[in-house]
Every structure is written in structure tokens, then in C-alpha cells.
Computed example of a mutant assay.
Amino acid sequence: MSTDYQQAREALGHRLRELRLSARGGRLTGTQLAQRLGWPHSKVYKLEGGRQTATQQDLRAWAEAVGHQDVYSELDARLQGFESHIRSWRRQLASGHRPVQDTWNVAVDQARTIHAWEESVIPGMLQTADYARHIFLRYADLYGTARDTEAAVRSRLERQSWLYQGGRRFHALVWEPALRALVCPPSTLAAQLDRLAGHVGMDTIELGVIPMSASLKIPTANGFWILDHRLVITEDWHAELWLDDAETVVSYRKVWDTLRESAVYGADAQNVINTARRALNVR
């Protein structure tokens, strides 16, 4: 989580405490406010201490409980200002997957160098249309979101034009399980692996594969992307995180460099890809 984000969350917590202490009808203790809200008292103290992220519903309830309904718009503006670092899937996917891909396209287009790590899927910049289609459908089913699948696929493929522009460099690391995960039909994965093998040796792409047999200095954990040493984009099941403070970016780059030590490149990477391809037994 970025330093800027945490500082903003703590500032919001301080404002919430001010409102509790200046409640209409007299100051409230944290326990008294929790009773009014029907919350465990620990939630009040976590929000005030910047140890938990408030929701819009939390802020509205707080403003009403302390008799300051008029400050809700201010609280919500504060939340929206720093929540941009944590982009919940519920909010992002409300209009489907295409808007998310368009936002990525803008960020990627501004970058000259990208370092990516994926442990469970083929990196989006290297996906075939059919593979991407199945990924979007899987997530649409999971989150119950709009199925703008074809528009999302087109947007993701548009981003791949970045790979063919001079002066750009894509450093991708992929864990071998991503080459074998059947998140799509075997024939689709086979075509995807053929495409991936073809990227090995391309002058704008440095593709490393970490074999399952490789010794790892750290756990693989979640995938992430580093854009120009200024922005990290990673995700969890609840949200996508955009992290831009320098210390965090340096930490993720250190993780990437450490993972890279376990990777193979060139002909060795092609061998790992081709072995996974043959295991599918699809002609």
C-alpha cells in the first residue's frame, strides 16, 4: 500500500475523530458511537487510526450518527481522492471489462519500459484473442459483471501494438504453472503457447520462464507490473492496486529482480514452453 495512500487514510481518520468529539448534543466516546452505529467498537478505532478503509456507507452512517450530515460530501471527496490507489473490482467492472482495459492502455502507452511478473496466467500483452476471451468470461462469471467480452478483447489487443514500437522494452517473467493452467480449452491454450514461443527472441521482448523445478529465493505470490520505475499495478480478488510511491516501486522491482534469478531465457525458455505444449496432446 502506498505511503501517500496511508497518509490520506490517516488524515481521514483524524477528521472522523474530530467529528465524533464535536457531535451535536455533546462529544461521544468511541464506544458510544459504536453503539449508535451498531458496530463493534474496534471498527471505530480502526477507522480513526487509519488502520481500516472506510466505505461510502461507513462515512454516511458516521456523519448521521454525529449529527453532521452536511459533511458527508466532504468525507466522500476525501475517500474518492485516495481510494483511486485501490480500485475495487465491484466499482471498476460496473460497466464491464472494456473500460478497465482502456485505462490500462493509457498507462501502458505512456511507458517506455515495463517489467511484468505473472504466476497464473499468460501476460495480457502476449495473449491471443481467444485466450483473452476466455479469461474475461471467467471473471465475468465470477463477479457477475456485464459481458462486454469482445470489446474488452479488442482493447487488450490494441495494447499489444506497444510491443512493435521502437524504443520500448517489455521484460516479462512467467511461472511455468501459467503455461499449464487450463483456464481455457486445451486447443486455445495450445495456440497461446505457440504464440508465446514465437515471442522468444523478439527485440522488444525479454521473456523469461521460471520452471517448476527451479529453486526459488522467495514465494511467487501475486502477479504485478512495473511501468517505468514509477508505477506498480497489481491485483487481488477484491481490487486492483495502483501504487506510485518510490519506496513501494523499489520494493516490487527488488522482488522482480529476485524472481528473475530463477528464470531461463532463449532456447531454454522455449523448451519449457514446448514441453507444456506437448503435454496438452493437441494437434
Rank of each mutant, 00 (worst) to 15 (best):
D141W: 10
R159Y: 06
H134S: 05
P40N: 15
V71H: 08
Q56K: 10
L126A: 06
A94K: 14
Q57Y: 03
L163V: 13
W104H: 08
S42M: 03
G96K: 00
A54D: 01
Y45L: 08
H41W: 06
P40S: 14
Q160R: 04
Q52F: 06
S84W: 01
R156W: 06
A151F: 00
V106C: 08
Q101K: 07
R87N: 11
G144Q: 13
Y139F: 15
R36Y: 02
S84L: 07
V66K: 04
G166K: 10
Y164E: 15
D130G: 07
L37P: 05
Q101E: 11
R98S: 12
R138A: 13
D70V: 12
T145P: 02
Y131E: 07
E119D: 14
P123Q: 01
T53E: 14
Q57F: 02
Q110Y: 03
M125C: 03
I86H: 00
N105D: 14
G144K: 09
L79T: 04
S88D: 14
R138C: 06
R78C: 02
A65M: 09
L142E: 15
R98L: 09
Q127R: 09
G144Y: 08
D148F: 00
H85R: 11
L75P: 01
P40Q: 14
W62C: 02
L157T: 07
E83C: 05
V106R: 12
L126E: 05
Q110L: 06
W39E: 10
R90Q: 13
V153F: 04
E48N: 01
Y72S: 06
R87E: 10
D141Y: 10
R138V: 11
V100D: 02
L93V: 07
V71L: 08
L157M: 15
A151H: 00
P99T: 04
W62T: 04
G144H: 09
G49L: 05
D102N: 10
R87L: 11
A94N: 14
Q127S: 08
L59M: 01
R156K: 13
Q110R: 13
W62A: 04
R133H: 12
Q80I: 05
A94Y: 12
Q56N: 11
P99L: 01
F136K: 00
F136W: 06
G166C: 08
A94S: 15
D70S: 15
Q92A: 10
S161N: 14
L93Q: 06
E150I: 00
G81H: 00
G124F: 01
R91D: 15
W89L: 05
Q56S: 14
R51E: 13
G81T: 04
L142S: 15
E118I: 07
P99S: 03
Q57R: 09
G124M: 03
R90H: 12
E64Q: 14
S88A: 13
W39N: 07
